[in-house]
Nucleic acid binder design. Structure first.
Lengths: 153, 153
DNA sequence: AAAGATTGAAGATTCAATCTTG
DNA sequence: CAAGATTGAATCTTCAATCTTT
């Protein structure tokens, strides 16, 4: 019969790796989120603050920021709306291209990321890295580098 | 100075492993979601269907299902509402404890999971496992098994 | 009083439509 | 017409409050 596709299910090693990855990653993310919330941030806020704090002039075009965060244009608009209300970010018009809006880190936003980042890194260690030895960390980095990111197969 | 905590930032290997994990996992999840949407499901629906299809009688208590999916009670209620509207699941009263509601897989729900699962497993292979060799898969399983899941440190 | 489940309201996300500028 | 950004409407998610049963 043409077009019949017999499914090759996951074997034991494969299932252990995939399910383990899903569960471990989900757990770590949840714990990191709890830590961020102690600082009044969520994971989306943190992504915005990290990107802005590393950008020249602590400013980025909305469209570039949306791409960096894998967010839709409107999704970023709403998130920046919220962060502007909370004083973490401000908007500025670009002098080069009058279509673009820049998202700019405010002093309060800078303080927030500088307070939250050490806790966050601590969390990445305590919830994740501390449980792996150096070899495992290197192997993991190698494995993840082999996984395609974008549209290519 | 007491209480002063000097942050130990991530070194190169650590950063590569952690950022790689975040980016690879996010990308794989996004591609799997696109596949599920071809079948009219999202990732949350899929989790419900997998759990119910593996449960005795294709039925589970709402509270147990919520725990299995790391969902809040109300979050599960809304999701089941949506799946009932679409005919994938039905509700039934428990005969043992009249506080509990059972979520039950319908024939349509059974069909949906049986159509979607092979594509999903294919996706896990094409987007993820196919890019790792057997050793990498085993090492990954070992590493993920070492990461704590719950509230313990 | 606690467990199981649901609901209302508030906040977030996405799609399509709109507006402005290049 | 395409790119950048925003808005409205619909959908989804979560919190607190509520209701029933144990």
């Amino acid at each position: 019969v043409y077009g019949l596709h017999v499914t090759r299910w996951l074997d034991e090693d494969e299932m252990r790796a995939w399910r383990g990855l899903v569960e471990a990653f989900t757990a770590v993310q949840a714990r990191l989120l709890v830590d961020l919330q102690q600082h009044g941030l969520d994971d989306g806020d943190y992504g915005v603050l990290v990107n802005l704090s590393e950008a020249p002039g602590a400013a980025m075009r909305m469209c570039d920021l949306a791409a960096a965060l894998h967010l839709s244009p409107s999704g970023l608009t709403r998130r920046i709306d919220s962060m502007v209300r909370r004083g973490l970010v401000s908007r500025a018009a670009s002098t080069e291209d009058r279509r673009v809006t820049l998202a700019v880190l405010t002093p309060d936003g800078r303080s927030a990321i500088e307070r939250a980042a050490p806790d966050h890194v601590d969390g990445v260690r305590r919830y994740f890295l501390d449980h792996l030895d150096r070899d495992a960390i290197r192997h993991l980095g190698d494995a993840m580098a082999a996984v395609p990111r974008g549209r290519e197969s």
